[in-house]
Design a protein around this nucleic acid. Structure first.
Lengths: 301, 301
DNA sequence: CTATTCGATAAGATTGTCTGATGGTTTTTT
DNA sequence: AAAAAACCATCAGACAATCTTATCGAATAG
């Protein structure tokens, strides 16, 4: 059976042109090297070296074998270099999934900070709804997901990062008390995302309308669309606070109101319980939590 | 110290997804394989696989290591193949892949001649579609493939052998001008092979219907089937000239017409650029080219 | 709850590899 | 020409790596 050791010794022999010096270079004795060379020749079934007393001479086949051996050894060295290369605290590559109602609001803040703090990490991003992220996590396409907790079943571990409050977004010409009781929300006046977004289910839960999913009037594909509907007077919606800076800018004709009691969703990270080095996910979580706090100084964790 | 044995076991483990089956594939017991995997992980200093209850899961780094390991093992196999091919000009054994729209028309001519000229060579044949052949070439299951060029990417070398013209095959009761303009072909009247055959794509390209793959009316699994459909009046097809003697015998009620301009496919050989002794593939190509010329005396190469 | 599967671990046997000693052949030195 | 040195092959025993069989514990299925 061919071994890397044989190739290493053979390469050293070709380079030194000398059994003894090759053995020195390999930190073994000369008989050890001789035996391995002999073994290699037997394995390949050809003569690699002409043993001549004044130096040795590679045969034609020996030269071809040398080229291939050198290639293999280079690749092997590359493999070891890769393994040894700067294995940062976050690892070398990380595949992160994010749900659509978080991604556009957190990633622009978090990515530059991640890049600054862990420049060696090669981050791959996937945006998809919770169910899809869970599937991708389970079969290894993703390492970790950023979504609303709780999510997933037994084989996952999670870490909550912060609470994201829901605000009521209404057309600006609507009657606008300073604060609204959550129980008073009328489900049939809400504009919501289409089926499959966890934000939709959370909004319905806030209204106590768990069993009545069919009632919401519209299934939009993005929060931007929802906000446009609201601005044009078609109804109200529950808006995550993190979306406010992007979706409810000053020039958007909508009114925001706090709810009483104050509902929220828990944003957190989720990963396979069996994933190696789970502490790297906590480091990732630290970054996200920090950029969130910096941009929402009024909120406590 | 990194060893080929560790890489071999790791590759088997990645392929089987199972310690026990990987051990079987390597003809050792499961603990032996487990130890080598553990050794490899220790050597590289990283976790390559997640041990989970239902199957195993490669980590991101594990996947990268797998790619590099597979590369090293391929090179090692090539080295051994090179050494083993010490015999005749074609070597001692040759594994040849052929696409289904060539195999039945060329092999019956070429195999006897190969056997006559290089009786020492032990030829192994595989028939599969281009994509599959490329995969098998890349990981060393095949030495060389006979297919329509161009195919494959950077790491392959190729040699064109001859041009194979396309003829229009119609039901014999159809209106039959002596020559047909290729641009006049109606894609929706063509009977083609199912998805995956390069001949299908080439026929569509001839009709200028690159973006309209969905239009062709039928997906047959062999040219014989296609010709039966044509003979029974269900439509026309583009028939490679090499298939004419077999598929359009005198007793088959179809009419053949030349196209203007005259489309064709380039038949050639493809092999790994790193394969040992590439000149033997040229010798193989010579045989194929010669039997082709002998059976198509009207054509120039 | 029991039976089974799967991977890890342990102990002992086997095989592979290394070292140090030695021998034969060729080249260099005297 | 003889002696010395250099060089590589071979051998025996020591040591280390690897394998096998047996077993364990956790998880899963019936």
């Amino acid at each position: 059976m061919l071994t890397l050791r044989q190739l290493r010794y053979f390469k050293a022999l070709a380079e030194t042109g000398h059994f003894g010096r090759a053995a020195d270079a390999c930190h073994v004795t000369q008989p050890a090297l001789s035996m391995q060379i002999k073994e290699l020749e037997a394995e390949l079934g050809l003569t690699l070296i002409e043993r001549r007393k004044s130096g040795i001479q590679l045969t034609g086949e020996g030269n071809e074998v040398l080229q291939r051996a050198a290639q293999i050894l280079r690749n092997a060295q590359d493999l070891q270099d890769f393994a040894a290369s700067g294995d940062g605290p976050l690892g070398r590559s990380l595949s992160l999934g994010v749900i659509p109602t978080i991604a556009p609001y957190i990633l622009p803040l978090a990515l530059p900070e991640l890049q600054r703090r862990y420049p060696e990490v090669n981050l791959t991003l996937h945006e998809a709804q919770t169910d899809h992220l869970l599937d991708d996590l389970a079969d290894g396409k993703l390492d970790v997901a950023l979504l609303a907790l709780p999510a997933g079943s037994g084989d996952f571990a999670s870490e909550p990062l912060f609470e994201d409050r829901f605000l009521l977004a209404m057309p600006c010409n609507a009657p606008a008390p300073e604060s609204v009781n959550a129980a008073d929300l009328q489900v049939d006046r809400l504009i919501l995302l289409e089926e499959g977004h966890c934000l939709r289910d959370q909004a319905l839960a806030v209204c106590g309308a768990v069993g009545e999913q069919a009632m919401a009037r519209f299934g939009a594909t993005s929060l931007s669309t929802v906000l446009q509907m609201v601005a044009n007077g078609y109804g109200s919606t529950l808006l995550p606070e993190m979306a406010v800076p992007v979706e409810a800018r000053a020039d958007t004709p909508i009114t925001l109101r706090h709810l009483e009691p104050e509902p929220s969703r828990t944003i957190g990270l989720l990963w396979r319980a069996s994933a190696p080095r789970p502490e790297r996910f906590s480091l990732l979580g630290d970054v996200i939590r920090e950029v969130w706090k910096k941009n929402n100084p009024s909120r406590r964790g």
